[in-house]
């Protein structure tokens, strides 16, 4: 089997999600090539070559790929991918944007967000907000797959020594231009890969009250997340949303504060190892998935918890 993994990176470094995707590729089994497409990606390519289990790194270093525009990446991945049997990418906002475009150009389907490799052509993936797990079999000659990172433990970032080769192909589709990016700066761990996540919902009442959660998170070395209700109400920015259509997390400890537990939210966090719920409504559905439930006023319980740690 020949497997192409499209790297998630920021031109300078390889993102952790790439390591989970390589792990999924190893479960399929075969020769793993990583494609690093960007601009000024020498350092990222070097890092990719050290990932355990990777045999080759292909580098497409061109202005057309600087901002991961789907129109340009789609053309590149379809061109490079046609000589592989599998094309994999992490199901991040970025991967979700370009991978289906590449699949359609290859005239094959995409299997989205696999959580398990059953065999070389059969995979498990959650549907209906994770209320159903489907086992699906692909009949396509090239299998294009996005990988839910929480389903696969990452491979080691070091230990490999893959050869690095340049890709000659470079094409700007000429229909899209990057203008700017407003990224939220935070010293806390990245939500998707954090060991502990503290999330707030509508019960937080306003954005200012999230300070309570930031203080708790900093004490625990945790990332901060939120329910859709809290994001829609403008308490916190969109990139904190955990749920069916937001970020999927599976930390060792997930602390849900003032979150009622709609099925769409549960879809994004119920694979967490330990779940704690703090909510004043003892009948809130979140308690049905929580290992430890505390029925209490969060405005007293959260500061008390922070002090007790």
């Amino acid at each position: 089997m020949s497997i192409l993994v499209v790297a998630e990176h920021d031109n300078a470094s390889i993102k952790g999600a790439t390591l989970n995707t390589v792990a999924a590729a190893q479960k399929i089994g075969g020769d793993i090539t990583v494609l690093v497409a960007g601009q000024g990606v020498a350092a990222a390519a070097e890092a990719a070559s050290k990932i355990a289990g990777v045999s080759k790194v292909l580098v497409a270093d061109n202005a057309a790929y600087a901002h991961q525009l789907a129109e340009n990446l789609g053309l590149l991945i379809a061109e490079v991918g046609k000589s592989f049997q599998y094309v994999l990418a992490a199901a991040t906002a970025n991967g979700k944007n370009f991978l289906p475009r590449a699949a359609a150009l290859l005239d094959v389907s995409q299997i989205s967000e696999i959580t398990e490799v059953v065999s070389a052509d059969t995979f498990k993936r959650p549907i209906y907000a994770g209320n159903v797990i489907a086992t699906v079999q692909s009949t396509d000659p090239i299998k294009v797959i996005s990988v839910r990172t929480t389903g696969f433990d990452p491979v080691a970032a070091t230990g490999g020594s893959a050869a690095i080769e340049n890709v000659a192909f470079a094409q700007d589709a000429g229909v899209s231009t990057f203008v700017k990016e407003e990224l939220v700066k935070s010293d806390r761990p990245e939500l998707a890969g954090a060991k502990i996540v503290v999330s707030g919902g509508r019960g937080m009442q306003n954005g200012d009250n999230f300070k309570l959660l930031y203080a708790l998170a900093d004490k625990l070395g945790a990332a901060v997340g939120a329910s859709r209700a809290a994001v829609d109400a403008g308490f916190v920015p969109n990139d904190l949303q955990v749920g069916q259509t937001g970020k999927i997390v599976a930390p060792d400890l997930y602390i849900a504060v003032g979150i009622s537990g709609a099925i769409q939210h549960l879809a994004g966090m119920k694979d967490s190892k330990t779940i704690v719920a703090i909510n004043k409504d003892g009948d809130a559905p979140i308690f049905q998935v929580a290992d430890y439930g505390l029925v209490a006023d969060l405005f007293q319980a959260v500061p008390e918890l922070e002090k007790a740690l």
């Binding site: 906002a93 231009t177 990057f178 990016e181 990224l183 998707a192 920015p237 969109n238 990139d239």
Partner: peptide, 10 residues
């Protein structure tokens, strides 16, 4: 809406 925040394209 992207993973780290917001991105603007033309």
């Amino acid at each position: 809406e992207v993973d780290g925040g917001l991105q603007t394209l033309t």
